[in-house]
Design a binder for these strands. Structure first.
Lengths: 341, 341
DNA sequence: CGTTAGCACTCAATCATGACGAGTGCTAAT
DNA sequence: ATTAGCACTCGTCATGATTGAGTGCTAACG
């Protein structure tokens, strides 16, 4: 489809544009060591590339900038995935070497590292919990009519809710209820917990415990695990250093989007496993139509758990980011293994 | 110190400036219904007020804007604390009416309400936990060599950490250890937990349990309660709508500050109880030298627990914000009472 | 004597103008 | 097929004139 020379020129333009953020002229390409043609020749090729839709011209007498299609071709055929910088690698390793005693720490760390190394914004989706199974359930009373319900999953994830104890419920009733719940529900995936609670456990519980229904209702409500806490961000302000965000209004729409956890969750739910690249308008959400989102899923024993992602301007260092995400997603999976064995 | 008329004019200027964000001229003050003087008279008074340091002039032929000193005087003597808007009040009440089953939810809600109603940024410091006492301690093993340590306080606050189980430690040893810890440590304030762990419990534990030291070390490390999670923000992007933040660089320094939880904690640690107003350079941190921070502590049974705050431009609706914070801090204390009785 | 009308003055903001330069497209020469 | 040369386009920047909001001062007024 494209001649070798066209590919070379396209590649050069995009590389330069990624660095400079300014339209690239024929002269500057010609002057690069690796292209042995005069500006005029380059110009001809550039005109062709524009006609084919790979380049755009902001205005008549300006240089060319890559179009979405151009970036897409670059990512699919041209970009070379360099090794990750040695220095970056040691940064990752030393950052991860810290003793972390919560899964959330690992995920937040990953987000921070990513944004630090790239100067873009990182979005990391922590391990999903709904496929975890119940490991331990407990009620700790903290006053006459309130208690804390604690749920521990097989991965060590802990959730807690304050619930109201139905009046007239005795201590012994509560203990009995907890015992029944534990024997009946351990090993059940969280996602099936609610239905199982009502269908099977309900009757059993009713036999031994008064006020059973009210307790069930309260628990029912408490078991809505909050998926929203899975999203971790890093370097949200890095975008402000990019020239494409000189304008405060653009910044605001972007930052507002980043604040909307549910929207982010939805964005990440429809991603391919492995590396995924969404360029500009390929993103469904209008607020990031001049951004690119690169994602990589991480998995343990073949089961995909979550996603690490980098959001940057379309003019983004694809090569670096892709290889970085690749390395980091694997390192992260390794680290999370501690909770998953 | 100031004549009645001067106070009146100063008040008018600040009120108008808060609304318009633009230097106020003598003519516009004169045209207001409540001031019965010609522009010339106003000008004379304005010149005096400037000489006294209450007003500033951006440049010779512009109107006047309030100085820090002017705002200070306004806050101390002039501002009238209106009733909170009825509509706002119902917003608060209905927002808080939702059933919330975690203390953090209440605090996050408060931050959200505040930023929504004011269009400024809210910073809320949740209840401190270090004066809480231990209610319940537990270890839940999740694999051969890891377990989750769970700490529940008397206020229902739950913290959890993943710890490594020393090899060769038996299940029964662990159970025994947990029992000892529970009997010895319940009721002890978190802040004294670590020292007590080593001094008193250590020996007792050593008698019954092997590997006691290693277990203690692991626990020791796990008990570093993270004070950082006390900070909740709302409406961080609201600032971007303020004309004083048209400039992306200013936005960045501000947002970077808001990301630094430890700095925020330090800022909030030196606040007066009750309502506090810090105007412009009265704030220690350079990044908010053109902002004002208004704070209100909330307390239960006379004990101050945390702080709600609003960060806005110095040109901020002090009257509205102060009365709003006053109402909200009390409502919030009421709601938190559930966990504190 | 306090208040106000009038007037000269200042200065930021706005807009039109023109020079500049980076870059293009086309054509003709190599 | 490649390239040198040239006319042309258009955004950027500096310049200068214009406008208008606002001031300070002075003299007149009640």
């Amino acid at each position: 489809m494209l001649t070798e020379r066209q590919r070379m020129i396209l590649n050069a333009i995009i590389d330069d544009y990624i660095r400079s953020a300014e339209p690239i002229g024929s002269r500057s390409i010609s002057k690069r060591g690796d292209v042995g043609y005069s500006p005029a020749t380059i110009r001809n090729e550039m005109a062709d590339l524009e006609e084919l839709g790979f380049l755009e011209q902001p205005h008549t007498s300006a240089g060319r900038i890559p179009s979405i299609k151009g970036y897409r071709y670059y990512v699919d055929h041209l970009v070379k995935l360099g090794e990750v910088n040695d220095q970056d690698l040691t940064t990752i390793r030393s950052f991860f070497a810290e003793k972390m005693n919560q899964m959330e720490d690992v995920v937040q760390h990953a987000a921070t590292i990513l944004s630090n190394l790239t100067n873009y914004t990182s979005i990391v989706l922590g391990p999903e919990t709904f496929s975890n199974s119940l490991k331990h359930f407990q009620l700790v009373p903290i006053s006459d009519d309130t208690a804390v319900a604690i749920v521990v999953t097989n991965t060590g994830h802990v959730e807690n809710r304050t619930i109201s104890i139905p009046p007239d419920m005795s201590m012994s009733d509560m203990e009995r209820a907890v015992n029944i719940l534990n024997t009946k529900l351990i090993g059940v995936p969280l996602i099936r917990l609610k239905s199982k609670l009502h269908s099977e456990v309900g009757q059993e519980l009713g036999r031994y415990v008064d006020q059973c229904e009210r307790l069930l209702n309260v628990l029912d409500q408490a078991l809505n695990s909050d998926e929203e806490n899975r999203v971790f961000l890093g370097g949200t302000t890095n975008m402000l250093t990019q020239p494409e965000f000189k304008d405060v209004d653009k910044v605001k729409t972007l930052l507002d989007l980043l604040d909307e956890t549910p929207t982010l969750m939805r964005m990440f739910s429809a991603l391919p496993s492995g590396i995924g690249v969404r360029i500009g308008t390929e993103n469904s959400h209008a607020a990031i139509n001049n951004c690119s989102l690169i994602t990589a899923t991480y998995s343990i024993d073949g089961q995909s758990l979550g996603t690490v992602g980098i959001l940057g301007p379309t003019r983004m260092d694809y090569g670096k980011v892709i290889s970085l995400l690749d390395v980091l997603s694997k390192d992260m999976a390794l680290l999370l293994g501690r909770w998953y064995k």
